[in-house]
């Protein structure tokens, strides 16, 4: 029994394939989805979406959105989503530094919120880029 996982954004379809498990960034922490999950619609936070299919592990950066879960299907409707190969680590680092410097100056609430969002976004990207350098290994080898 497998799960059909679709990751779509308004601009494109990023991923569509069968997987064994989905770990998604829920509003209160990672949510693990296995086949035969109860029907669920949930909001998604900024974070990493990890999916495994056999030995293969894939990670995506999700920047907000929501997810629909059915017993045999998971549909992720992300505002923005990226695969590991799409991250420019230097750009993400630069974005993080910019956001941090802005936050140090204690800007007005509106700018503060925007900077926080940019910071969270860049952190997720950096996390994804770092992670993909470390290939997935099954647990017994660790």
């Amino acid at each position: 029994m497998k799960l059909q996982l679709d990751i779509v954004t308004p601009e494109r379809e990023l991923f569509s394939n069968e997987v064994d498990i989905v770990l998604a960034p829920g509003p209160e922490g990672q949510i693990g989805i296995l086949p035969q999950h109860a029907p669920l619609i949930t909001v998604l936070d900024e974070g990493l979406l990890i999916t495994r299919s056999g030995e293969e592990e894939l990670t995506f950066a999700i920047h907000g959105g929501y997810m629909q879960v059915l017993p045999d299907r998971v549909i992720v409707l992300a505002d923005v989503a990226e695969g590991a190969g799409e991250i420019d680590i230097e750009r993400a680092e630069a974005a993080r530094q910019r956001a941090e410097e802005l936050l140090k100056k204690s800007p007005p609430p509106e700018e503060h919120a925007a900077a926080m969002k940019a910071l969270r976004r860049s952190l997720v990207r950096i996390k994804l880029a770092r992670r993909s350098h470390r290939p997935y290994r099954p647990q017994e080898e660790q």
Partner: peptide, 12 residues
């Protein structure tokens, strides 16, 4: 069957 809404249908 009825969906579970997380955190709530209104939030979704």
């Amino acid at each position: 069957a009825e969906y579970i809404y997380e955190p709530s249908a209104r939030e979704i």
